[in-house]
């Protein structure tokens, strides 16, 4: 039994990388509380995922499987997570600020009578366990105190490191859920995946992003080519997504993906606060825009005032040469 329970996410039998960032958070919180952390894996192939997740120092890995959990739904998963949290005696339940975490964890909070903090980016420096979280599109950081005995959190993965396996294997305990599938009022009809051979935007070391300045869906191939030359993920602004240059899954910003790659290159992006909220934690920021007044230059380490239609092909070609050397 540990004080902290991390909600592990997985797909097709593999642990998602985002969970490794939540474990980093859990190790920091555990250091403050003076205990350890456990993991919970809900859904198909939970046992296989638990075996992968067991090498990161968890006191225990709990699994929940069954027909009600084959397909993710918030009410069923929240029920299972809350049951495991109660069984484990957890005081802090933390998951990633992913679409699953944001959808499901508030329901866990209600079941446990707990207060919840969203998008945690750090732990407060005082004696008690308080949390730092962005507000107003990241222009303000709030420190929140949760007044209930149990805390539920989503953690912004870009703000925490990924952890390396520490060896060993945590004991696994299968928990039988009492969830009654007949009470479920919703079902997933269909899933339409975004198909891409490029690195995952949330996890990529390099990201090349395009904005409204790219002007058309066809022109977006310039962004794709540059990304491929660099081995980067592709991203976009909401304006580019709304104009249907690219699917929404690539949107970076307050309502899209929050990223912190080693290198971000933005082309034809003005830098609306909603976009900056999603990328300003990047380690190195490059902005290419022909408008020298574009707000993105205020956060850029390297700004190039130039036409992206000239810069993108030239940069692509020179990067290819550089890589082949």
């Amino acid at each position: 039994m540990s004080d902290i329970l991390v909600v592990a996410e997985h797909a097709a039998g593999s642990l998602k990388k985002g969970t490794l960032h939540v474990i980093d958070f859990a190790r920091q919180a555990a250091a403050k509380l003076g205990g350890g952390f456990d993991l919970v894996v809900v859904g198909p192939q939970a046992a296989a995922v638990a075996a992968q997740a067991g090498g990161y120092g968890a006191g225990k890995v709990y699994t929940v499987e069954g027909p009600a959990f084959e397909q993710y739904t918030a009410p069923a998963y929240a029920h299972a997570i809350a049951e495991v949290a109660a069984h484990a005696g957890a005081k802090v339940i933390a998951g990633a600020s992913s679409s699953l975490g944001k959808d499901c964890l508030p329901r866990v909070a209600v079941k446990l009578g707990a207060g919840m903090a969203s998008d945690v980016v750090g732990i407060g420096s005082g004696n008690g366990l308080t949390y730092l979280r962005p507000m107003w599109a990241g222009n303000v950081v709030g420190e929140v105190e949760i007044t209930t005995a149990i805390h539920v959190l989503t953690v912004r993965t870009a703000e925490f490191d990924t952890v390396e396996a520490s060896g060993g294997a945590s004991p696994v305990e299968a928990v039988a859920s009492t969830f009654d599938q007949a009470t479920l009022k919703q079902r997933v009809v269909e899933f339409r995946p975004t198909v891409s051979a490029r690195p995952d935007l949330s996890e990529a070391a390099f990201v090349v992003a395009g904005g409204r300045g790219v002007k058309s869906k066809e022109n977006f191939s310039l962004i794709n080519d540059l990304a491929d030359a660099l081995g980067a993920a592709v991203g976009a602004t909401r304006a580019a997504v709304d104009a249907e240059f690219i699917e929404n899954d690539y949107q970076i910003g307050q309502t899209g993906k929050i990223i912190a790659p080693d290198l971000y290159i933005g082309l034809g992006i003005s830098g609306a606060i909603q976009h900056l909220a999603g990328m300003k934690a990047s380690k190195v920021i490059v902005a290419v825009n022909k408008d020298e007044e574009a707000p993105i230059f205020t956060v850029a380490d390297y700004g190039l005032v130039a036409d992206l239609f000239k810069v993108a092909p030239e940069l692509t070609e020179k990067l290819r040469k550089l890589k082949s050397q």
């Binding site: 919840m116 949760i146 230059f297």
Partner: peptide, 19 residues
């Protein structure tokens, strides 16, 4: 259940350069 007890400014990025 949740109280915001303090506010702070996000870390500022140092000014970059034009190339």
């Amino acid at each position: 259940k949740v109280k915001t007890i303090a506010f702070s400014n996000p870390p500022e990025r140092k000014a970059g350069v034009r190339v």
